[in-house]
């Protein structure tokens, strides 16, 4: 059982929902990434998703793309990211998962990447460019190490395919709210609640919703139908303020923002 499985058992027992912020590793540097993760968990985030910068992220909108570019321009390397995360995990009570392109995992070797996550106390991975057909090797590697391999279901996924994905995903299912790239949206699709409701009836796996979520109103509306919510671009955009502001106030701003979402979650 992975740390994520344990988290959701606890949350479901307490009838609570997860809030999972996304932060880009190394934007603008790894010290700041570590500080933000600790701040967000201290504020009450149940998990944290750490984006590993990639040169060609086709699922990402301008905000996250730009953060990846800034981090890569600093010469960020995977080894340094994992080392930093390994120092953070013993200091926080919430699991970390990496959002990472398969290009990076393949280059390092599936087993080696998974071993490194294990050694650093990281609970699993989301691989946005690895559809279920291409995932059996990595799923096997993750299973042998009690790591969660979180797979995605989207509005364009047919129902029979969604069922197949529920069978191979572990930790939770990531339901993508909109057909599109990451980024804040004012409106979320009206059929979203119904789709997530259907999916939750099909599987014992927790279902978390991501993409487009940025406002307390979104959280209020979606929390009842999901096990958790993921917020990315809205946080990364605020973290980018560190370039023109100081670290302490940026940290405060990001923390306050997540606190308003957590308030809406209760």
């Amino acid at each position: 059982m992975s740390a994520i499985d344990q988290l959701f058992i606890k949350l479901r027992n307490e009838n609570r929902k997860a809030l999972m912020p996304f932060v880009t590793a190394g934007d603008p540097d790894l010290d700041f990434t570590a500080a933000v993760i600790k701040e967000l968990v201290a504020r009450g985030a149940s998990m944290c998703e750490v984006g590993i910068p990639y040169s060609d992220p086709i699922a990402d909108g301008p905000v996250i793309q730009a953060s990846y570019t800034r981090a890569l321009d600093q010469g960020i390397k995977l080894a340094a990211i994992l080392e930093t995360l390994g120092k953070v995990t013993p200091q926080i009570s919430a699991p970390l998962v990496t959002m990472v392109s398969y290009a990076i995992i393949y280059r390092h070797g599936l087993e080696k990447y998974a071993d490194q996550l294990n050694q650093r106390g990281i609970a699993g991975m989301i691989v946005p460019d690895l559809p279920v057909e291409e995932s059996p090797s990595l799923a096997k590697v993750c299973k042998a190490r009690d790591l969660s391999l979180i797979q995605l279901v989207t509005p364009t996924t047919p129902k029979d395919r969604a069922l197949k994905i529920t069978e191979t995903s572990s930790g939770f299912l990531y339901y993508v709210s909109v057909a599109g790239i990451t980024g804040e949206r004012t409106e979320l699709p009206p059929e979203l609640l119904e789709r997530v409701g259907w999916l939750r009836e099909q599987t014992p796996l927790p279902v978390c919703i991501g993409f487009g979520i940025s406002q307390p109103e979104h959280v209020k509306r979606l929390a009842p139908v999901a096990d958790g919510l993921i917020v990315g671009s809205a946080i990364v955009r605020r973290m980018a303020n560190v370039a023109k502001s100081d670290r302490a106030s940026t940290l405060q701003e990001v923390g306050d923002y997540v606190a308003t979402l957590l308030e809406a979650l209760e």
Partner: peptide, 20 residues
């Protein structure tokens, strides 16, 4: 059928595109 040329090829894209 999976788009493999030997070990090369395949389909490494976001789930959103798979059905299309």
């Amino acid at each position: 059928a999976a788009g493999r040329f030997g070990k090369f090829g395949g389909r490494f894209v976001p789930e959103t595109l798979v059905h299309a």
